[in-house]
Every structure is written in structure tokens, then in C-alpha cells.
Design a protein around this nucleic acid. Structure first.
Length: 453
RNA sequence: GGCCCUGUCGUCUAGUCCGGUCCAGGACAGUUGGUUCUCAUCCAACAAACACGGGUUCAAAUCCCGUCGGGGCUGCCA
């Protein structure tokens, strides 16, 4: 059997991280088994679907590197397929036009819930000729007296069973060319010869309905596998109120490789902490996917991201941050201490004049006069030294520190003069990046700050 | 309410199928210490979990029963 999987997002919002994770797992499964991975846009809900979301989904999947095979399928372009299948169901008598109004159905279900029953609806007139279209809806007939148990073997969870009489008739389409989710999915998966349906856990309860549709259509269902959900920190399904949920919102701070690496860990234990998707694919087994939901832990993502940032080449880093003017030597100073790309701004003293209060120049109990003296000596050292030779500059500053009886008195004021910050990389490295001229300029500026009050 | 899924450190998890090697291991986060002018890195250490109750057994995180908890679905959305 040819392995064929799909990711089927609906364009009602930007690409959700949950959808992205599902896409990744489908991608991994396809790669591992030499199968095909298809992208199908489920845009049957005309009111909520929007082309701009479709564009975002496509763009985001590309950004993540989750490339699909072949053309993009859109349900809105496949209406004939649904019409054919819905007529087949109508002709065989498995589906029928239901004329109960929406309100009537809702009222009935409410009463059932009050009576502590499973909400369901069975049309009495499904076999009658009343069924000619007159503003009704097409539903699949389910035998309310059935004693049958519908079951499927989930590749992640094992057998999942359902008693057929527990769910009533359900809706398939509003019209021949207006299919509803459960029906459209089945019609498409059949037409596209999907072999494995790998999707989120929230679809488990749709699966039995879909199996009934396969059955009515006389087609063998595919293999199903339901991934655990991505949870927010309050353990509920990740949604808008939890903040960043679309891939879009991660693009400024995170590397796609890092996000993919992280998503690979939501519901799966990879053999290494840092692993790319090709390596994940080699080891991927559906049976090893976890069953319980996992919280989206941004701190772990940050750590993974920092690991990837450290490995960035100066060219890559400059391109990603737009800091094209930066000297290559400055890049590792930044990337070694970065979680999120946008935090590169914290190192702007490498390309901008720093501003700071002169009090910051003080080292421990030493007064500003001692600081000024130290800076004068430092300035002299820098003037007389080839600063590209960091070892020798460091040695001279060490000597100064010894002479002053405190290494900090030599290093701290210089560091603040150059960066204007409490925390920064080694001032010797910053000197190297800034160059002799700029360094002396900033040291002089610091001295002036002190003596000009 | 009904149905379905699920339950090991704060978080992600290893171990559960085939009970002993687990007074439960790793990673992230946290805390402390070391290196150090500060930060980061690195190193060392600390704290931290088998949801609960029964049962089976010489022995249970692992098997059985029950309870409780969490989540999802319950649409003429997907």
C-alpha cells in the first residue's frame, strides 16, 4: 500500500502551532515511510474562510520547511467530488434530506440533555418522499436500534469503541455542493487515496461518524492515529486567550529549526534534545507517540532556540536580524547569550553610542576619582597596544588590576564606558569589535562624564 | 448531563507491554557553590514526582478492581 498522508487546515486563522505540529508528524511519517505528504485547504465554510489565512498557512509551512508533495488542494475547487458522493449516498438511501428546522433540533437535544440522555436526533420520515429538497439539510441515517459497536484501531491509542445507537443522524451537507466537515473529509480522503489519517486528539469523536460514512460509501477506511493535544499552562487546549498560538507570532524571535525541534518533543521523546527533522524522521514510529496532552513550555523552546542561535554563522545572523553593518567578530558576543532574536537589541552598544549614568562606572567601594584614574590608565594602555591582540591587551589590563590592587577596578569602568550596561561581554572582546578609535572615544567620554560636574 | 481520551518531579519525559536491576533516571526551569570585572558559558551540588484507596504477590510506578482528577467532543465550524 502506498503511504499517503495529509495536513488539512482550514483557513479561518493563521497557522496554529497545533496544526504545525500535526503537519510535522505527518511529514515525519511520510519521510520515514517513503510516502507522500499532501496539503489540503479545507475552505468549505465560506463565511469564516479567508484567502489571507490560506496565504499565511502556506507561508508558515514553508518557513518551517515542511514541504508538501504536489499541488495544493482546495475543497472549494473540488465541489464536483462531493456532489457525486452525496448523490451516491442519497441514491443508496443511506442519506436523506431532513426538514427539521435548526431550532427544532436544538430544542430536542436540550431536552435530551435534561433527561440525562445522549443528545441525538433520528428523522422519522427519512425513508419517505418528503425528502425532496425544500430548504432542508442532507443527513446520514443511523439505526437507532442498532446493537453494533463501531470500533477502530488507533495506531497511537489502540482500540476505540463506540455504540452505534448512541449517536443519531448527523449532517453531511447543506446542499450538493455545500459539504460539511465530516463528509468532505471522507470524500477527499477517499479521492486522494489517503492511507493514514494522523490528526489531533480533538478529532477522535469524529472518527466514528466518518467510519459510518466510509461504510455507507462502501470504502475501506484508512488507518487512524490521534496525536495528543498541545495544552496551555492551565492544561486546557491552547487557544487565543493564551497568547501566541500562531506560527506567525514566533517568526521574529525563533528560528524555524528550533520551533520544529521543539514541536517534535510535544508528544514524542526524541533520542536527542537537539535534533533536526530529518533525523527525527529516521527514528519516527507512530506507536511511540504519547497519549496524553503536553503543555507548550516556552522556556524549553527558548533554550532550544538559544542552542540554534549559537550555531548561526555571522552571515546568517546578520541577515536574520537585519544588522547587516555589524562586524563578524561581534556576532558570537551576541549569539552566545541570546534566547530570542529580537533581544539582539540589548547589544546595541556594539553599533550605537551607549547612554548611562556615571554612577554606573563606580566599582565596589571605590569613588569616582579612582574610576577616573583607572580609566586614564586604561586609555593609555589601549593607545599603546595592538587591540587586535586580545591576549596582550588582557595581560596589560591584568597588570593594571594588580597595580590598583583590584582587577575589577581595571575592567568594570572600561566595560561600562564601552557598553553603558551592568551586564555585557568581556570588555576586551568589545574593544576588539569597536576598534581602537571608538574605544578611546568612549573611554574619554566616560572620563568627561566624571570630571564635568 | 452523555460519550470518548488521559493521569511519573513546576514542565517535557525514561521506566509500565515481559512485576525485582527504580528508596524512580534525564532534560528545561529553579536554588546554591566554583571559575570570573559583570553577564553568558562551563563545572559541581541541592530541591523536586509514581493522583488516591483496595486487592494479587515473597516483591507493584509496573498486574486487577474501584475512586478521584484533567482534557476533548457533544454544530446546518473545522
Amino acid at each position: 500500500m502506498k503511504i499517503k498522508v495529509r495536513i488539512a487546515p482550514s483557513p479561518t486563522g493563521n497557522l496554529h502551532v497545533g496544526t504545525a505540529r500535526t503537519a510535522l508528524f505527518n511529514w515525519l511519517f511520510a519521510k520515514k515511510n517513503g510516502g507522500e505528504f499532501i496539503l489540503r485547504i479545507e475552505d468549505t465554510d465560506l463565511e469564516r474562510s479567508d484567502k489571507k489565512y490560506e496565504d499565511n498557512i502556506i507561508k508558515s509551512l514553508r518557513w518551517l520547511g515542511l514541504d508538501w508533495d504536489g499541488d495544493i488542494y482546495r475543497q472549494s475547487e473540488r465541489l464536483d467530488i462531493y456532489e457525486g458522493r452525496i448523490k451516491q449516498l442519497l441514491d443508496s438511501g443511506r442519506a436523506f434530506w431532513c426538514h427539521h428546522g435548526k431550532n427544532e433540533l436544538e430544542k430536542e437535544q436540550k431536552e435530551q440533555i435534561d433527561k440525562k440522555e445522549a443528545p441525538r436526533h433520528i428523522c422519522e420520515h427519512k425513508k419517505t418522499e418528503l425528502g425532496k429538497k425544500k430548504g432542508g439539510i442532507i443527513r446520514l441515517g443511523v439505526d437507532e436500534n442498532s446493537t453494533r459497536v463501531i470500533s477502530f484501531n488507533d495506531k497511537i491509542r489502540g482500540d476505540i469503541k463506540w455504540e452505534e445507537h448512541l449517536f443519531g443522524d448527523f449532517s453531511l451537507a447543506k446542499d450538493f455542493k455545500i459539504p460539511l466537515y465530516n463528509f468532505a473529509v471522507v470524500a477527499d480522503d477517499i479521492d486522494m487515496a489517503i492511507s493514514h489519517v494522523i490528526r489531533g486528539e480533538d478529532h477522535i469523536s469524529n472518527t466514528h461518524k466518518q467510519i459510518l460514512i466510509y461504510e455507507a460509501l462502501g470504502v475501506e477506511p484508512p488507518v487512524f492515529a490521534h496525536l495528543p493535544l498541545i495544552l496551555a499552562s492551565d492544561r486546557t487546549k491552547l487557544s487565543k486567550r493564551h497568547g501566541a498560538i500562531s506560527v506567525e507570532e514566533y517568526k521574529n524571535d525563533y528560528l524555524p529549526e528550533a520551533l520544529v525541534n521543539f514541536m517534535g518533543f510535544i508528544g514524542y521523546t526524541q533520542s536527542r534534545e537537539i535534533i533536526n527533522k530529518e533525523e527525527m524522521a529516521e527514528e519516527f514510529e507512530l506507536s511511540k507517540v504519547h497519549k496524553s496532552g503536553a503543555i507548550f513550555d516556552i522556556k524549553k523552546l527558548n533554550w532550544i532556540n538559544s542552542q540554534y542561535i549559537k550555531k548561526l554563522s555571522p552571515e546568517e545572523f546578520k541577515k536574520l536580524t537585519g544588522l547587516e553593518e555589524l562586524r563578524d567578530a561581534a556576532v558570537p558576543l551576541i549569539t552566545d547569550r541570546l534566547d530570542k532574536l529580537s533581544d539582539a537589541e540589548n547589544f546595541n552598544y556594539l553599533w550605537k553610542e551607549p547612554e548611562y549614568d556615571k554612577e554606573l562606572l563606580k566599582w565596589r567601594k571605590n569613588g569616582l576619582d579612582a574610576v577616573a584614574k583607572s580609566l586614564e590608565s586604561v586609555k593609555k594602555i589601549i593607545q599603546d597596544t595592538d587591540i587586535q591582540d586580545t591576549d596582550s591587551l588582557r595581560a596589560k589590563l591584568d597588570d593594571l588590576g594588580k597595580a590598583l590592587g583590584d582587577r575589577g577596578l581595571a575592567y568594570w569602568p572600561l566595560r561600562v564606558a564601552l557598553t553603558g550596561r551592568e551586564k555585557s561581554p568581556d570588555p576586551v572582546d568589545v574593544t576588539f569589535v569597536l576598534g581602537k578609535e571608538k574605544t578611546i572615544e568612549r573611554v574619554e567620554k566616560a572620563i568627561k562624564k566624571i570630571i564635568s560636574f
